[in-house]
Amino acid sequence: MHPEDALVVRGLLARDEAVFEALVRQLHGKLVAVARRLLGEHEAAEDVAQETWRRVLSSIATFEGKSRLASWIVQIAKNRAKTRLERRKREILIGDEGLDPTATWFDGFGQWRSSPAAWDTPESSLEHERQKQLLADALLTLPARQRVVVTLRDVEGMDAATASETLGISQENQRVLLHRGRAALRDAVAAAMRARPS
């Protein structure tokens, strides 16, 4: 086990409230943000984060340190968010498929109106972080169905069949949502990069 994690685990097992509070302050915002990708609504995500803390406390004695403590906690939050998504998909998958952002990309002959510009691999890791941050924000602005499909498939790496099954939608519908969601994210990133003189 990582030495820092070992200290925290020892503190928790000793029922040290200050150790727990520090952990909550460090990770709570991340747990909420991760849950929001799947659940949208802030309150549901907050509930998942709170459930996660309860679970962390009740099972901290079983933490073996195979991964870092933070990973273990984030994984608990993701699992709980997925469970909640499956149980309440009718409330969460609200709205329709959302617009097809690619409708404006092509002319009457089905040709690109303007050429895609292969995004440069950012020169600095700072720029790389900025792009990821931008995507994290843009993801939350997608229509619910697109957001959830892109999160399961591209962020969480779930395969197409499992994602369709989890959401109770056809694989074809899943593909449409994935296509539209990715296209919308592409537009969002391109717009942000244009807006900023490089």
């Binding site: 943000a33 991964s67 933070a70 984030v74 972080e129 941050q133 994290a136």
Partner: peptide, 8 residues
């Protein structure tokens, strides 16, 4: 997982 990127 260890350090998920979250919105600003």
């Amino acid at each position: 997982e260890q350090d998920p990127v979250v919105p600003m």
